[in-house]
């Protein structure tokens, strides 16, 4: 990718996720934790695409071979917080930007006009549109997270790496007299990473050598989805299985890929 196409600013901190696909059992705990943390109402009909909202979605991958070579993998997909977010450049009202230290792509609901250009632009289907106002079963409104604002009908929303936890971690650092821009390992992690029972989701600052994601993202088994589009995702995946890595992009037969 040419230098002139690099629209992202350079940040001191780059929050990133490294998801070990081989450790993922597809249990869906991350998805549930995400819904509960981010005030996503439970869907009455989870097969109804019009009514279900997912910020994080676990996809099932298959290698398409017959038994005994058949193999499956599960791939949790949050927002990639792209270095070159295609969503931000198409937004007509600057409701989604990548301008904060840490590189998390923001989504400002009151500014959003619901035109859904960003949804069309996102190659990862990370964005969802609210066709309906959220409804919580009676009593469940008590479980709402106060640090996450609730979205009305008519706006687009997406995973924010549980950005409110970043704000709270910075606040705690300030209260303890530490530099809010040098958070320690695991001081700020999203709900999905916290909930994963197999520890498949690692989270931290990709630029900080003291954080484990720094090393993991440089592994020979690491790949990013649709990397060749030049979106520069801040979410990495790990797999020791070449067929899984091959599904990360639209490779043709003769293409070389990482780790081969």
């Amino acid at each position: 990718m040419s230098e002139s196409m690099q629209i992202h600013e350079h940040f001191q901190i780059k929050w990133g996720m490294v998801i070990d696909v081989d450790k993922c059992t597809g249990c869906g705990a991350c998805q549930v934790a995400c819904q509960a943390e981010n005030n996503i109402p439970p869907s009455q009909q989870s097969f109804d695409r019009l009514r279900s909202v997912h910020w994080l979605y676990v996809y099932k991958l298959e290698n398409g071979r017959p038994y005994p070579e058949s193999d499956i993998a599960y791939l949790p997909r949050p927002c990639m917080q792209c270095g070159n977010p295609s969503c931000a450049s198409v937004c007509p009202v600057i409701a989604t930007t990548k301008d904060e230290e840490g590189g998390i792509v923001s989504q400002i609901y009151p500014r959003c006009i619901g035109c859904r250009y960003c949804m069309a632009a996102c190659p990862y289907h990370s964005r969802v549109f609210n066709w309906f106002d959220p409804v919580w079963p009676k009593g469940m409104e008590k479980t709402l997270t106060p640090y996450v604002s609730v979205r009305p009908r008519g706006v687009v929303e997406k995973c924010t790496f549980c950005h409110h936890r970043f704000q709270l971690a910075k606040r705690r650092a300030r209260a303890e007299g530490r530099d809010p821009h040098h958070l320690k390992e695991d001081e700020y992690i999203p709900a999905c990473a916290e909930a994963c029972p197999t520890g498949a989701i690692a989270f931290g600052d990709l630029h900080n050598p003291e954080h484990k994601v720094h090393q993991l993202s440089r592994s020979e088994h690491a790949f990013r989805i649709l990397e060749r589009l030049g979106t520069e995702p801040q979410v990495y995946y790990l797999s020791r299985r070449p067929w899984v890595r091959r599904q990360g992009d639209n490779y043709v037969q003769k293409d070389q890929q990482r780790g081969e």
Binding site: E100, I104, S106, Y147
Partner: peptide, 10 residues
């Protein structure tokens, strides 16, 4: 100080 949207919004 930063005026990035996510400094003040949630």
């Amino acid at each position: 100080t930063s005026n990035a949207c996510y400094v003040c919004h949630k």
